[in-house]
């Protein structure tokens, strides 16, 4: 489960539409914790049943208007079980409170809090006495920060925003985006590409480069110490946005899953019913930089 937070007008709805439009494969269920319109472009909607919209690509969208209890019950009982739960938090919601549902509920795994900030209006909102604490809470609890509308704001303002964000939240990576667009694998993590590890041989790694982001993967069936792994993930620089891996833990028979979403790290047993391909290894996404692969190569080399 991923929580998407951010104040009114920051562009959450546009991003949600973008993610749903892009989705091909993983079923995303969106819970909207706002009493605005269900933020789904008309052409995506296949059917409407009460508070729930069904999309042609298997995704769904449900209003949280009747309360968190009902919304989470609906989502958890939904058939077929969604692969990702995306909570579009209300503009005044404390994302941490919502993320706690995933931390407490055994049927959910927290995939991080992503907070979106509008580079155009951020400073005005932040100076509003009635809203300043909540804006601060949204930023400080984020595991990944998205600075949106970077095409519309002046460079100087973007820099000031980034500086304030860094001041409130020292560790979360800041991704600058335009038009609320971000690719699904960065937002949700590389759910499917683990399976694609079969394309590479054992103990090898590959990387692909796109314009702004780099991707990296390694296949390994070595036994890995969980505490050491956590340390390694913890010490990766903010430019490494997401890491996901399935691995054999030292001294344990079961397989384990590790997630890193910005500053959020979760290491838990691989659930029995997951459609696991049998390949173990790690994949990562980060912002493009010359030493991207070297950092990851070195970090994971130290695990062996």
């Amino acid at each position: 489960m991923t929580v998407l937070a951010g104040f009114l007008g920051s562009g959450k709805t546009t991003l949600v539409n973008h993610l749903l439009r892009q989705a091909d494969g993983p079923r995303i269920m969106v819970l909207v914790n706002d009493f605005g319109d269900l933020p789904i472009d008309e052409d995506l909607i296949a059917a409407k049943d009460g508070d729930t919209l069904t999309l042609a690509n298997g995704c769904a969208c449900c209003s949280m208007g009747a309360g968190l209890y009902k919304a989470f019950s609906t989502a958890l009982d939904y058939e077929p079980t969604p692969d990702h739960l995306l909570i579009e938090a209300s503009g005044v919601a404390e994302p941490k409170r919502i993320a706690n549902f995933a931390r407490a509920e055994p049927d959910l795994t927290l995939n991080g809090i992503v907070t979106m900030v509008d580079a155009l209006n951020f400073q005005t909102t932040r100076e509003d006495q009635r809203l300043s604490e909540i804006v601060e809470a949204q930023i400080s609890s984020a595991h990944i920060l998205l600075l949106n509308k970077c095409d519309l704001a002046q460079q100087q303002n973007i820099d000031i925003c980034a500086e304030i964000l860094r001041h409130v939240n020292e560790t979360a990576p800041i991704i600058k985006i335009t038009h609320g667009a971000l690719s699904g694998d960065i937002f949700f993590g590389e759910g499917r590409s683990i399976d694609r590890l079969s394309e590479t041989s054992n103990d090898s790694h590959s990387h692909t480069h796109e314009t702004d982001f780099s991707r990296w993967s390694v296949a390994t069936d070595s036994e890995i110490n969980k505490a050491t792994l956590k340390e390694v993930l913890n010490h990766l620089p903010p430019s490494i946005l997401r890491v996901k891996g399935i691995f054999r833990a030292t001294g344990e028979s079961d397989l384990w899953v590790a997630h890193k979403a910005g500053t959020h790290i979760d290491i838990s047993p691989l659930s029995m019913d997951s459609s696991f391909s049998g390949r173990t290894g790690f994949v990562a996404i980060g912002t493009k930089s010359p030493d991207f692969s070297n950092i990851l190569d070195a970090a994971f080399h130290s695990l062996k």
């Binding site: 209890y69 409170r97 509920e105």
Partner: peptide
């Protein structure tokens, strides 16, 4: 609610 929910859900307390 976040901490209460998993138990309330399993006991049907709505």
């Amino acid at each position: 609610m976040a901490a209460m929910f998993p138990i309330m859900r399993r006991l049907g307390i709505d």
